[in-house]
Amino acid sequence: YKPCFVCQDKSSGYHYGVSACEGCKGFFRRSIQKNMIYTCHRDKNCVINKVTRNRCQYCRLQKCFEVGMSKESVRND
């Protein structure tokens, strides 16, 4: 598999339409299922990588959408 499109960590396969790691897969699923609203405490362009991905949930979710993750493919079960 290609590296995670969101944070470049080791991917566990294709999730919600893109190559993603377990961490970003779970983060995206929880964010969508719980209708989470995050805020960025900087200027909405935080670097998201394996080391920084937990620092800003707003920018991490934005990057999930930017790389093509589909909220329609998240099931509500």
Rank of each mutant, 00 (worst) to 15 (best):
G23Y: 04
G23E: 15
C24V: 03
N54Q: 15
C4M: 02
G23R: 04
K44G: 12
Y58S: 08
R53F: 13
K63I: 05
R55H: 15
G23C: 14
Q62Y: 04
S70K: 13
E22H: 04
T39W: 08
Y38R: 03
G17K: 07
H41L: 09
G26Y: 04
C24D: 04
Q33S: 10
Y58P: 00
V67W: 03
R55W: 14
K2M: 09
I32T: 07
A20P: 02
N35Q: 13
V47G: 08
S11L: 06
C46R: 02
V47D: 15
Y1D: 13
G23Q: 13
R75S: 09
N76F: 10
C64H: 02
D77E: 14
S11A: 06
G13A: 05
V18R: 02
I48R: 00
Y38Q: 02
C64N: 00
C4G: 01
K71A: 10
C56K: 00
A20L: 08
K50S: 15
F5E: 04
C40F: 01
N45G: 09
S31Q: 05
M36Q: 13
N76L: 11
S12L: 06
K44E: 10
N76E: 15
N54H: 13
Q33F: 07
C46A: 01
R53G: 11
Q57G: 15
F27M: 04
G13Y: 06
Y14Q: 06
K50G: 14
S70E: 12
C24F: 03
Q8F: 08
F27S: 01
Y58W: 14
G68M: 02
N76R: 10
V74F: 09
G26S: 06
P3H: 11
C56D: 03
L61A: 03
C24Y: 05
V51T: 11
K34P: 08
C24R: 01
I32E: 05
Y58D: 07
S12V: 11
S31L: 03
R75H: 13
L61W: 03
F28W: 07
C7E: 00
T39F: 14
S70L: 13
R42K: 13
R60Q: 11
R30G: 02
S31N: 03
K71M: 08
G26M: 04
R60P: 02
Q62A: 12
F27G: 02
C56E: 02
R75E: 14
N35E: 15
D77N: 05
R42W: 14
C59M: 02
Y16R: 07
G68Y: 00
M36K: 11
D9F: 02
K25T: 12
C24S: 01
Y16V: 09
C56S: 02
L61K: 00
E66V: 10
K44M: 12
V74K: 06
I48C: 02
V18K: 02
M69F: 04
R75T: 10
H41K: 08
D43V: 08
S12I: 08
Q33P: 01
K2T: 12
C46T: 03
S12Y: 04
R29T: 15
G17D: 06
S19G: 06
T39S: 10
Y38V: 04
V67E: 05
V47L: 12
I48E: 05
L61M: 10
I32D: 05
R75C: 15
S11K: 06
Q57R: 10
V51C: 06
C24K: 00
C59H: 01
P3M: 07
Q33R: 10
D77R: 06
S70A: 09
I37Q: 14
C40E: 01
V47W: 09
E72G: 07
R30L: 00
I37K: 14
S73D: 14
G68Q: 02
C59V: 00
N35G: 13
K63E: 03
M36G: 07
N54P: 11
P3Q: 13
C64T: 02
N45H: 10
D43P: 04
R55C: 14
P3A: 13
K71R: 08
G17N: 08
S11P: 08
R60T: 11
I37M: 08
Q62I: 11
F65A: 05
Q57A: 15
M69Q: 02
Y1M: 13
Y14D: 15
F28T: 03
G26A: 10
S73N: 07
V74C: 11
V18T: 14
V67D: 01
C24I: 01
G23H: 08
V18H: 04
K44W: 06
R55F: 05
C40Y: 03
D77P: 13
R42D: 09
P3W: 06
Q33K: 10
S70Q: 11
V51Y: 11
H41A: 11
D9Q: 03
G17I: 01
T39Y: 11
E72H: 08
V6R: 01
R29H: 15
